[in-house]
Design a protein around this nucleic acid. Structure first.
Lengths: 231, 231, 231, 231
DNA sequence: TATGAATGAGTGTTCATTCAT
DNA sequence: GATGAATGAACACTCATTCAT
């Protein structure tokens, strides 16, 4: 009729573009609702296609999920590797890595939750692909730590992998609190505090009267904590 | 044997005992497959009863899950609180807490995975009961840290909650590696190493004491950043 | 122990009395929730016995229902037969029957709804027993009508059964409106109005200027209608 | 035939047609067994589809029911309104309405039973949609009655809604007898007889005109009763 | 006789996947 | 290649009834 009701033009798009639209929709849906709860029907709808079409691009729901996660990880790794290369010194680099990890968690909470809560615990999903990507991602930190130990900037008597686990695990754990509380995450403050613990430890220096600097620092830290709680 | 279908003998047990059998089955099934994937049908089968019977003991699948988790947490808390009371000194107590956390993770991986991956992210499951229990559990570490800071045994310029997050998060992260690798977890070695990092930090001593100047600089910078946020 | 917690004395009651308690509970439950929705479990609980006990008194849920209905009908019939015998004249008796029917509907709405909505439509429930009772009940009206026709007090050219159907059906239909509206039913007014229609019909009298009486009557009826709508 | 399980050929039909097939099946099943007792499984089977297919057309069993009833009512209302328009005079129109009501009850007993016995008593089913339709249907009779009273063709001293209740209620009641007896319903005879009673009443003429005195007495008594209630 | 734990067939509903068009 | 109607197996949950105690 050529009437008002927009008769959807059978949009013929390049295959590549359609695929990206479906991936974007899947990322939104999986991020918001998780893998199990997010339905293929909704992904199709958000991508502006029909359910069956999704299956011409991705053989199964699982495969679609893995592509979403893979794409996410690869962009992240590319980005972080660049960032590390631009810095000098293990401490600087570790502080950057922690800050970046905190930031990505806050920005892409949905995907992070997806990986941690649904993919990682499920052997059927957490296959070689994701495992490899995760290793590549955390290997960045591992490299930094190992080089820091080699140069003597970091203590050499600790397991590098454990240090790395502490960084990522501690970060995630700390972030959950903000997520559950529904509070705005103080990204910078949190990153610094985490880095401090990992780098300097929690034991008081044995040497008494150590330094004016540390006393000032302690005062600042107390100030920060106070401010943190006040907000 | 010989009969086509093993006609279940209708057995009768004290209520308390049946309940425990169902709880044990639920713990196995939920631990192995998770909450969503674990079916009531399988729990019933493993408990040696019929599906309907499960519902005479627990009103919903969710309620059954919560009982499983509650029972688990309460035994754990009782145990850990006793352990901490028996020790003196923050370092000793933290080392014990880390070791115990590692151990429980290894022994009850299924339940831990369940709590971390399914209950915690889902507001419908993560209700007051589990929230309270989780707080009680992590509050043990928090108390140890705060007392350590008060006595001066631990550095007082760190956020106690962050230290706690680092302990639990780092532990969990480190353990996943063994889980995925299917490797036997070296509980003692791992516990000690984690404790070392948290307590002593990763920076080499020279670096830690490097220069008053640089530490003042960093402290001021942090102060500045924080002031920006506050305005 | 003899403790505070009232250890329920194994109440040993005469069989007859237990049966009455169960019947009373069943009447409440079926009346409030209907046959399908009312569960044997709840009836047992309200009767203060255990599910299995119900089945030592009544073989099936259906049988229990039928006893409830039977008891209800028999008391009703006994009562109404007595009432009719005490009156003289078909008109008086019909007015009484209508008023009584309206009243029982209002007082025992639950049971009436049960009979009309669940028993009557279901051949499996509406067996000989209820059918017979219903016939006995409506036969009272039938007898009145037939005797009225025989004496000439009522028009003889109408089907007695149809007149009866009109009385009962019209009453029920009119009452539903109040039930749905949740309004207090004006029992007396409604009874009279129904009786008027059945007895006098709706066609205007052919004879003009018939009577001062009918004009007054009409005015009163209009007044009533007005009041009815105003509340 | 020969095959162990009749492997259903996957057929494809225009959406509209499938929907009608499912609606027809639902009408049969709900009509025969009621809403609660009729299962989606059987509807699907009778429609020649699989259970899941039903849910691609109707979101819930309840929605399917409402469509069945809505479709039924709308066709009925359309038909009856046309019929009334074609006639002149309140008596003629009422006779037509009664006859039509009797006929529809006989033809669509299942649906009528459904509406009266399951939908109307259940607030969850008897929502706005059905309520409105039912009002539209009975409003037709109401309009006829009111117009008849206005023109003086019908007695003006009766409540129009009560007259309507008598028509519909009496009709329904009378019909149950035939239904239970399993007898062929004499539609025409029944319609005429019902109309006679409603229109002319049952009192013999002498009685109807018996005495101005007694009628005045009754009217005054009614007025008194009503005044009591009003205070 | 009374108990109440146990049964098991049944319910409506969901959704990843397939395949005729 | 794209479609979307159709599939079918699975799920949590209910409840009248049975029967070992």
């Amino acid at each position: 009729m050529g009437g008002a009701t927009a008769r959807r033009k059978r949009t013929r798009r390049p295959r590549e573009q359609r695929e990206q639209e479906i991936l974007a929709a899947a990322r939104r849906v999986f991020g918001a609702q998780g893998f199990a709860a997010g339905s293929v029907a909704e992904i199709a709808q958000q991508a502006g296609v029909v359910e069956g079409t999704v299956y011409t691009y991705f053989a199964t729901k699982r495969e679609l999920l893995l592509r979403v996660v893979t794409d996410f990880y690869e962009a992240l790794i590319r980005d972080v590797e660049g960032g590390v290369r631009a810095l000098r010194g293990a401490e600087n680099q570790l502080r950057y890595l922690i800050a970046r990890h905190v930031a990505v968690f806050v920005e892409d909470l949905g995907i992070c939750r997806l990986v941690l809560s649904e993919i990682r615990p499920d052997p059927a999903l957490y296959g070689d692909a994701v495992l490899t990507l995760n290793r590549r991602y955390t290997a960045i930190a591992l490299g930094v730590i190992e080089r820091g130990m080699a140069t003597g900037e970091l203590r050499g008597d600790l397991s590098p992998t454990l240090v790395r686990d502490l960084i990522y695990g501690g970060t995630e754990h700390a972030l959950w609190r903000y997520v559950f509380a529904g509070a705005e995450t103080p990204v910078d403050v949190l990153s610094d505090a985490l880095a401090d613990i990992v780098l300097r430890g929690t034991l008081a220096q044995e040497a008494a009267g150590e330094s004016a600097a540390s006393r000032i620092e302690r005062a600042v830290a107390a100030l920060e904590r106070h401010a943190e709680h006040a907000t």
